[in-house]
Design a protein around this nucleic acid. Structure first.
Lengths: 99, 99
DNA sequence: TCTACATATCGGAAAAAACCGATATAACTT
DNA sequence: AAGTTATATCGGTTTTTTCCGATATGTAGA
């Protein structure tokens, strides 16, 4: 993944917001089903909270996925997304030394 | 300056490249006049090295300036640009804790 | 003042991004 | 199998970004 593409993934208010929300899923998405939060939050809940259409959020999540900032887990008909903390750390460390 | 705008400033190969070059102006721009490098490198040299037009580079430098990554010093007919290391450090520290 | 040169700004063409609605796919339910 | 639900993908419109050429501005020198 190109560094420019990674910065592009972060160049959008909604995508930054999603990453922020996923820092604390319990607090950000209290309506989560008993399933728990271990695998993240499903697309629909993010979509409602973001106030954009389903297709847009699905697209944005795949941008974040390609950039490596989140990982996806398919469970039944749901796809759960959560932050990839290690990848995020790698990125922030990298730009701390490279930028 | 909005954080989204700052990431946008970094979402371009040429602009990232310029920031990179300005880390070591002596090595990146050996043709610099006896003036020295204390105030940075002038637009024309960056333009030649980047291989884009003068207007584009002038524009890109002002994007980097607005984002706070560089500072400009006008000296006679030249404008010298150099990195604002403190601002860059502030930014990388901020996303290290916030992202 | 006239000319030359460095940089900034303006206007625009082409490409990319931000969305959307419609449709496809995949999994669950009955 | 047929209907329902969650997500992904496709096609399109509008906005933004990328880059250019032309022009304006600002400074220095003859």
């Amino acid at each position: 993944m190109d560094q420019v593409e990674i910065f592009k993934a972060l160049s959008n208010k909604s995508r930054l917001q999603i990453l922020e929300w996923l820092k604390d899923p319990e607090a950000s998405f209290p309506e989560q089903k008993p399933n728990g939060y271990e695998h993240g939050v499903c697309v629909g809940q993010i979509q409602v909270k973001a106030g954009l259409t389903q297709s847009t959020i699905s697209e944005y999540l795949s941008v974040l996925l390609r950039a490596g900032f989140v990982e996806a887990t398919r469970m039944g008909q749901w796809t759960y997304y959560k932050r990839n903390e290690q990848a995020i750390k790698n990125f922030t460390e990298a730009i701390k030394t490279d930028l």
